[in-house]
Design a protein around this nucleic acid. Sequence first.
DNA 1: GCAAGGAAGTGAACGGTGTTCACAAAACAA
DNA 2: TTGTTTTGTGAACACCGTTCACTTCCTTGC
Lengths: 201, 201
Amino acid sequence: MIDKTPSERRYEKTRQGILDAARSLLQEGGVEAVSMRSLAEKVDYSPAALYKYFSNKEEIIEALRQEAWELMANFEPDMPPGLSMAEMFVLSGQNYVKFATRYPEYYLLVMSTTETGPESMEEFKQMPSFINLLQFTEAAIGSGQFILPEGYTPTHFALLAWFVVHGISLLKLSMMSKCADEFETASFEVLNMIQEIIGRD
Amino acid sequence: MIDKTPSERRYEKTRQGILDAARSLLQEGGVEAVSMRSLAEKVDYSPAALYKYFSNKEEIIEALRQEAWELMANFEPDMPPGLSMAEMFVLSGQNYVKFATRYPEYYLLVMSTTETGPESMEEFKQMPSFINLLQFTEAAIGSGQFILPEGYTPTHFALLAWFVVHGISLLKLSMMSKCADEFETASFEVLNMIQEIIGRD
DNA sequence: GCAAGGAAGTGAACGGTGTTCACAAAACAA
DNA sequence: TTGTTTTGTGAACACCGTTCACTTCCTTGC
């Protein structure tokens, strides 16, 4: 353990302070409210000073994106005990949409990356959040509660679920934002329908 | 028919010229490449002159969005004769994704609106593109080729299809852009799976 | 044909953005 | 205390959307 000098601690502290201010600006007014000048104003520095702590604005945004990603991964629903796989599936899907609704700026930040994504599907399948989803579908299919047509794997169903919840979330925040509540109830009915389709034999 | 004066024709012509230049800039470098200054440069006007033809930049973008919307609605796949409903479903879904792939800026433009969306689900269901999708699912379900669980309507399945293709398209253009091809084949397998699930009895 | 009036077009500016750089001030090291 | 490195700043650069007084051109009425 290398102990840090006071100056290193100070450096780290103001760096965190900048990120805190950026997070606050992001949540208040979306990503376009995060400007170097407003950020500097908020932390009582000159705009130029920020460049001693971050090499550019994108590095600040990227740090927030990382935070958002972690928050999203740890945003798990209250699972009442004794739920069937099908019920858990619906609840998880709803929870995903609820995250996007509660933290729209975080969600859009995570989704707005063309740079951080996986280089291959193989790499994608290694990502913790997808592994989680995959393990769930494997369990549901393995136990016979979910039934897939011949030739399809749990990965296919996990992808389906992923597509649907992303489609719902993004549409809710963009095109359907003017009737978001009504849209949400309709989309939750669709989640239920999927569960019934996949569960029937 | 009110015949237009020469000056009106000229006005309309330069207005179109501006839109042409804007479209070209959009397709070359995405929406952030469309700036009033680069636009003015391209049509050999001063930036201020553009405001005699459009009240602001958003009005230009909105015109392009309208174009994109129409192009998207008319982007229909070559349907070989004798296809089953299930095959047509898959082909239509693939076609949707292909549009997003071929015209990513157009697709993102259409999707990036929080202002133009429907005010209610009822209004949404009246939109031509959704009516198309709905009529197809009604036909497929009415003929017994698609089977839905009790209590669910063709609208539910149309929504499901809509969610999936949007989820695929947006993910392909954002997070999965680094492995877009691989991702596309996987997502097309998912479309096929849906068709098989919904078609089985 | 000519003057009046409106339409078309412009240069300069305002306030905003991200970023750089020479410089000053403060903290640290010898 | 001196010298050096870190920390911070003001001013500038090159962009952005937009406005406005001003000129230039075309059209309309006589």
